[in-house]
Design a protein around this nucleic acid. Structure first.
Lengths: 218, 218
DNA sequence: ATTAAAATTTAGACAAATCTAAAAATAGGT
DNA sequence: ACCTATTTTTAGATTTGTCTAAATTTTAAT
């Protein structure tokens, strides 16, 4: 497994949202910031190795082996992210870039020991679930804050957009995972929300609300 | 800096023992398990980048920049080794392979945080000194056990051979860094030594003694 | 059913890092 | 100083992952 192959598998997995379904060459190219022709080349190589299903003009999808491999890389990525935040005091907007490198380290013992050191965390710093060793997933029962009804309340459990600018914005506004949140009012005009977060009132735009996941307290 | 470039710099540094002096193409090829022609190619590339001095048929030596770069990689390698042993309970014969990968992770913040987490260690698990951020070295005042006179005593501070088989042998015989050691007798015939280590007497071969460093208690 | 637009693949090229085989330079022994 | 053995370099090929530009296939609209 080369680093590049691993990155393709990861990209295909993410584009497929974990589900089956065929992913287009173009989508992969865009996600990976490369050209469609490069994707075609790699598709052939990965198909050769039994990691993806590929038929000309029909898109690409992961085989079982491919899915398992993708999950093990995602597992490593997310465990390293937790490590960076919990043990080395990285902020949650800093971890992605470094984890992109660390996820390719080849040592099963290493990642198992990191897992144990962190006490087997279930979620990464952005609220995304960490696959188990055997590729099991525990997606949280969550919904976008923007989809919740007025007066609903819950706990902030994840972000949809995990880009550094968005995460920095959340930090600046003291919005963190684990915070309780209650929708006080919804503005029809711009769909901005008046919310109560950890006892303080603030107004957030629809753009923000549609990138924040909340676990409903039903 | 590609990974391969970094590996060449490291190899050149090690072969030069940290000192100046020109290293031969052949020596580098052997150390890196590659061919002399590949070394020549890389020598040109590294010279182009100002990392080594290179004149055809005259051998290769590191420039100041090259030395600094090599030291920063060695620093990362050794800090990761300490991390693996101290925080993840790796044994000292297991760390090298993984550290070979981790040393190439590009993040100054990461290695500084690891350094701090480990409380700024001065030596790695094999007793080799960890360069400081600005490339300073503190080589310990040590000598080979085999070079010490009879009745001398000291503390075991390092190994010359850090191959897995040798390290496993030491483990099995409960020889560890930090142990006090005293030479009770030297056998003229095979130059084996009768030693007192942490209260227990044992006999070790010349081969072993010539791969163990001891700090003299003069 | 046709056709234009979009997506995808092919063909050919390139850079990095390596190799083999052959050529060139150096070093050592007499 | 010469010759030979060793070391080093060159030349040309290979692999991996990428690219551009051109060709092909699919899609979607009329």
């Amino acid at each position: 497994m080369t680093r590049s192959e691993e990155n393709y598998l990861k990209a295909i997995f993410h584009l497929g949202n974990g589900e089956a379904g065929s992913i287009s060459t173009n989508a992969i190219a865009e996600q990976m910031d490369t050209k469609p022709s490069s994707v075609t080349d790699m598709a052939k190589k990965l198909a050769e190795k039994g990691l993806v299903h590929y038929k000309k003009y029909q898109g690409i999808s992961l085989t079982d082996t491919g899915t398992r491999t993708a999950l093990s890389i995602i597992r490593k990525h997310r465990l390293w992210e937790v490590f960076l935040v919990k043990k080395l005091d990285f902020t949650w907007d800093e971890v992605h870039e470094v984890a992109e490198q660390l996820e390719h380290i080849k040592s099963e013992k290493l990642i198992d020991k990191i897992d144990a050191l962190l006490d087997f965390p279930k979620y990464d710093p952005h609220g995304d679930p960490i696959p188990t060793k055997d590729g099991k997933f525990m997606e949280r029962d969550k919904q976008l804050l923007s989809d919740m009804p007025i007066h609903a309340q819950g706990v902030c459990v994840g972000v949809k957009d995990s880009s550094a600018p968005f995460l920095k914005f959340l930090d600046k506004n003291k919005i963190a995972l684990g915070n309780t949140i209650k929708i006080l009012d919804k503005e029809d005009f711009d769909q901005s929300l008046q919310i109560l977060m950890e006892g303080k009132e603030l107004r957030i735009s629809h753009q923000i609300a549609s990138n924040l996941y909340v676990k409903k307290n039903d």
